[in-house]
């Protein structure tokens, strides 16, 4: 299967759009018609063909444009990619995981040849051809984490495991839903989740941490998380909030379909071999309301979920200024009929 890539932007004129194929592959995150908070962790095993979870690392039509957008963000703010000195082994582990997975599942797009420590990597869409020595950072143009994550969709955080906790000690974060790697760098699991409301009291993070500390090699897990973004903007960072925050006030009943986007994060976690660290990947998918309602089931269900969302959750996700307008717009696409079980479109 040969991939073709969209020419599109995630800033300024916002030309990003999903093809019908990409819409059907969208990881719609709601299994029921009302909102319930769950940790919803499951094994990261292959999902249906042509879905976001068909392969461990998903490359799609937005690949080239997303990598260009990441390069722009990094040129304006290099602190989006940081790694504490003790994370070098984990960086190499990550490079191996991503190169191996990308080359195995998209062989026409990427290629990896290994002869002992001498590796040869080819990235056709980005026009890269790199010979390097695995384990020797001086043979790559950037550190191993930065090198490979400039070539892979999704944000990546490397979590060091020590003192019965996980520590956010490295990462490439340019497509985030309002959190700052630079601020959270060096924090433990409880600390970086501090701003999340309600879940602490439910003991959610204690249980999740206990589970992740025993995460095994070869047994990755995943979960979906969601929020909403005005305009298809990948870089909704706190750093630039004074630039994009104003967009939230721009939603009107006339422009909901084009401006309001459901933003879904496919989060996956792998135990890494040499470092015993965990990689936490956060792959962002955007879909505008006009595209979402092409799937009748999703239109009905998202309308019901958004209408029933508890206020503290809506506030935390920052939906206050446009939720009502969006619910009203979606109500026109909800005929009240029951929805079928499962996430997939009908």
């Amino acid at each position: 299967m040969t991939l073709s890539f969209n020419a599109e932007t995630f800033r300024d004129d916002y030309t990003f759009a999903n093809s019908p194929k990409a819409i059907r592959a969208f990881p719609f995150p709601f299994e029921r018609d009302d909102y319930t908070y769950t940790v919803n962790i499951e094994q990261h095993v292959p999902g249906p063909v042509q879905s976001a979870t068909e392969f461990p690392i998903h490359i799609d039509e937005h690949y080239v444009a997303e990598m260009q957008d990441r390069a722009i963000t990094l040129s304006q703010d290099p602190l989006r990619c940081q790694s504490l000195p003790h994370m070098m082994t984990a960086e190499w582990d990550l490079l191996e995981l991503l190169m191996t997975s990308m080359a195995t599942h998209y062989p026409e797009t990427f290629s990896l040849t290994r002869e002992g420590d001498r590796w040869h990597w080819i990235n056709r869409p980005l026009g890269l051809d790199q010979h390097f020595t695995f384990g020797d950072a001086s043979t790559l143009p950037q550190g191993p984490m930065e090198y490979i994550t400039r070539q892979c969709q999704g944000d990546f955080c490397l979590l060091d495991q020590r003192d019965d906790n996980l520590w956010m000690d490295a990462g490439m974060v340019t497509t985030q839903a309002d959190w700052s790697l630079d601020f959270d760098l060096g924090m433990n699991f409880m600390e970086w989740h501090a701003p999340v409301p309600l879940a602490h009291d439910l003991g959610v993070f204690e249980r999740a941490l206990k589970f992740l500390l025993n995460l095994q090699q070869g047994r990755p897990v995943r979960r979906l998380n969601w929020t909403m973004t005005i305009n298809p903007r990948l870089d909704t960072s706190p750093e630039n909030y004074h630039r994009w925050g104003i967009d939230k006030a721009s939603v009107t009943p006339e422009n909901v379909g084009d401006k309001v986007h459901l933003r879904v994060e496919l989060q996956a976690l792998w135990r890494l071999p040499r470092s015993n660290a965990i990689v936490f990947s956060i792959r962002c998918y955007l879909i505008k309301m006009d595209e979402l309602v092409t799937q009748k089931k999703w239109a009905r269900r998202f309308h019901r979920v958004l209408a029933s969302l508890p206020q503290p959750i809506a506030d935390y996700k920052g939906l206050g200024r446009f939720r009502d307008t969006t619910v009203a717009w979606l109500s026109r696409h909800d005929d009240g009929l029951p929805t079928s079980p499962g996430f997939a479109p009908d």
Partner: peptide
């Protein structure tokens, strides 16, 4: 079984 580490070096 796949390797499991409960006695890891503290890399810091």
């Amino acid at each position: 079984s796949a390797p499991i580490n409960l006695f890891a070096l503290n890399r810091t």
